[in-house]
Design a protein around this nucleic acid. Structure first.
Lengths: 332, 332
DNA sequence: GTGCATTTTTGTCCAGGACAAAATACGTTG
DNA sequence: CAACGTATTTTGTCCTGGACAAAAATGCAC
């Protein structure tokens, strides 16, 4: 790759890494990293290497690590990352225990991430790296047909997402390859949903994300499962302003509003945003929160946190049972 | 709509309106608008009304108006907007002439936006406002089947997008209704593309947007047309970092890279970004730029600006003719 | 009108200070 | 020794007010 990578200014770095300008400047002041060069006017110029490193740090922070420790380290992060992330991503990331266990012999644990969960996953990873789009499409399509939509989403796509993310961290996969993969899965899931029967009038569920949250994949997976179970989904795409989510719920008389927060969504904003939306919604409208960042909404009352994809189906089941009960009560 | 709309802090306003924190503060300093209240700690609190107005101003700026004039005005903007935007959106927005023509009698011109271009469009608008998702789906689906993919995209979806945008400006449509519409079109187009034959090996085209640009609809429309014409499209979704776009083009040996810039993309960044990407790409790889913000890349050399959807097809045609010529030359 | 120079407009960047909420450490008690 | 409440550290975001360059508009000579 003989392409030259020119340095970027602070705005470009913000766009590329998702780290705010204020954050970048305050890190420089506090931790002495990054150390961008300056142009003729005294403006910061970040080298491609530093941006790359910032991206990595961002992902690790999203997994529960803390900036102070990450920035000090040199390259042992690379060890920390691939080893630890595999074991912790499934759970709500037990805070603090991560860096402490560094004292153990790193190679001792049986948690070496790449322990192939399934040959299918390895195959897909290889094909993503190989840039063979038709082949990748075929593989995924076949897997879906063989497993059925439910198992495909839960057992294949979920783990695949994790595997892709980890492979990126290990430097085995490029961002554009990740994008290609995401796009393929998106196409596939939408295609599958299009072929479902036109949706009964079961619970109406509004699905969307708040502004600044643009990860759709998790939401799409949930939508697929819910639609498969006969719920009538009303997708609003991404980045719907809070007030508009509330209006949409009213307009469509939704029984449920389902939001997705990815792990990379600004930690602090999740709880206030969710609480605010909860306030705007009618009391009988349920509010479900899913995705890697959903744990941060745990404290908010009147909200159901879905910690896995299957949890969404359980919630759907609960809702239906509840609905039956209520109508029975009303009838009596 | 009895829902209370609590005031927002500056970060939330940035997310909701797309106006940067710096911009919001500097407007306040210079123009005396907005005038947010302050909380106990001296932090800005924007009222829902001001945010609404900011959203409107943002859209007008995206159409070529200038902040200085917009912010001074009271509600005559509402006139300016609906009347003028209809006539100018199609063209590259002749700069400056807009506000000048205010001297004319406003009602005289035959440019009243809502002059129903097609009954279909009015029907769709009504259905979007009516929140009847199944009906909307059916209408769009039928239109596509009747017109065929090409005509549907060019003659229906394009004008519809404009009509929806204008209806929003006139306050006739809410953001969430716009979202629902967008989502439906997206589903429909993807569905149509899925049913196309698996793509020949004609020119390989990488399609994506740069970071911070998340409007996919235009890109998707282009992709639909190109795929329909037998090009083999490699979609990377949105927000691919520049360097990764270049890497993707190399990895897939793409003949063409196609980017989309919406009108709301920060004006100043378009030209530098495009120039930078042009530098990274191999000389023989063509770079096509489309969308409402593409005119801003006109100055960059070695780039093809597509000012309409049909222009993409012309470009495709040109490329193919050129390819034939070259191979003939090589053979001779 | 057309082309060029000048002025205005406008978005983005900078420094360095401040503060609250979250995360962590600590000390006490059952 | 575990549980729990209280200090302390960490960390992201917001503040003010100044500066500057690129784009847009204006003025001016031809």
């Amino acid at each position: 790759m003989s392409i030259s990578r020119p340095p970027m200014n602070i705005g470009a770095v913000e766009r590329d890494t998702g780290l705010g300008k204020d954050t970048l400047r305050v890190w420089e002041r506090r931790y002495g990293f990054p150390t961008p060069a300056r142009d003729a006017h005294g403006e910061r110029l970040y080298s491609a290497e530093q941006v790359e490193r910032l991206r990595l740090i961002k992902r690790l922070i999203d997994q529960g690590h803390r900036p102070g420790r990450l920035i000090g380290a040199g390259s042992e992060e690379l060890t920390l990352l691939s080893a630890q992330s595999a074991t912790t991503t499934a759970m709500p990331t037990p805070p603090g225990d991560i860096a402490v266990t560094t004292d153990d012999t790193p190679a001792s644990a049986p948690s070496t991430a790449s322990a192939a969960v399934s040959p299918l996953i390895d195959r897909v990873l290889a094909q993503v790296r190989g840039h063979d789009l038709p082949l990748l499409r075929q593989t995924l399509n076949q897997a879906m047909l063989r497993q059925g939509l439910h198992r495909f989403v839960v057992e294949t796509v979920g783990p695949l997402n994790v595997a892709i993310g980890e492979a990126w961290m290990r430097g085995e996969i490029e961002v554009f390859e990740e994008h290609l993969y995401t796009e393929q899965i998106t196409t596939l899931l939408r295609q599958a949903m299009a072929s479902l029967p036109p949706a009964a009038s079961a619970p109406r569920i509004v699905l969307t994300t708040v502004p600044d949250e643009l990860h759709t994949l998790g939401l799409l997976m949930a939508q697929a499962l819910l639609a498969l179970d006969g719920a009538s989904c009303i997708p609003l795409g991404t980045q719907t302003p809070l007030f508009d989510i509330a209006m949409a719920a009213k307009a469509h008389q939704a029984h449920i509003v389902a939001l997705s927060f990815s792990a990379s969504f600004p930690t602090r904003q999740v709880a206030p945003l969710v609480a605010q939306l909860r306030d705007m919604l009618p009391a009988q409208t349920e509010l479900w929160i899913g995705g890697g960042g959903s744990e941060r909404a745990r404290a908010v009352s009147g909200v159901r946190v879905l910690s896995s994809l299957d949890a969404a189906l359980v919630a759907l089941d609960d809702w239906r049972r509840n609905a039956v009960l209520e109508s029975a009560t009303l009838a009596a």
